[in-house]
Computed example of a mutant assay.
Amino acid sequence: MTIPQTRNFGLPFMNLIRLKGIPILQQLHLEEQLLRTSSDNWCIMNDGTKDPTIVMGISGKPAELLEIDLVLRDQIPVIRRFTGGGTVIVDHNTVFVTFICNTDAVAGLQPYPRPIMSWSSLLYSRVFEGRGDFQLRENDYVFGNRKFGGNAQSITKTRWIHHTSFLWDYEVRNMAYLRLPKRIPEYRLARDHLEFICCLKDYIPRSVFLDQTVDALRTQFSVRSEQLDAFEATSNTKFVPSTRLLTRQELEEAAFGSHAQTTLSQSLSL
Rank of each mutant, 00 (worst) to 15 (best):
I100L: 06
G108W: 01
M175E: 14
E232S: 15
D229Y: 14
L251D: 01
G144N: 10
E138K: 06
R188Y: 03
S39P: 00
A233K: 07
V214N: 01
G86Q: 00
R248Q: 11
S38P: 14
G144I: 05
Q220M: 06
I76R: 11
F9N: 06
G150I: 02
L65Q: 04
C199Y: 02
R80K: 12
G10Y: 09
D211W: 03
I116P: 09
P4Y: 06
F143R: 06
T94S: 11
A190L: 13
D91A: 15
L251Q: 01
V172S: 14
L66F: 11
Q26I: 05
D133N: 15
L11H: 07
F82A: 07
D74L: 00
N236S: 04
T164R: 06
P205D: 14
L35G: 07
E67C: 08
S265I: 05
T158E: 10
N102M: 01
V97D: 03
F99N: 06
V127D: 02
G84C: 03
T6Y: 13
D202E: 09
P181D: 00
T156Y: 15
F134S: 13
F13K: 13
L264G: 00
V142S: 14
Q135E: 09
A216H: 08
R244L: 09
P111A: 03
D74S: 09
A216P: 11
N41S: 08
R218W: 02
R7Q: 13
E186Q: 15
T87Y: 05
E226G: 10
L246Q: 09
E138T: 00
L200F: 06
Q135G: 04
F13T: 12
A233P: 00
I184E: 12
L70F: 06
E195W: 00
M14V: 08
Q110F: 02
E138Q: 08
I17C: 13
V88C: 12
D229L: 13
S222E: 04
L189Q: 15
G21W: 06
I79R: 03
L217R: 05
D91H: 14
E195N: 11
D91N: 15
Q261I: 05
L180P: 05
R126N: 13
K238G: 15
N93Q: 03
L178T: 08
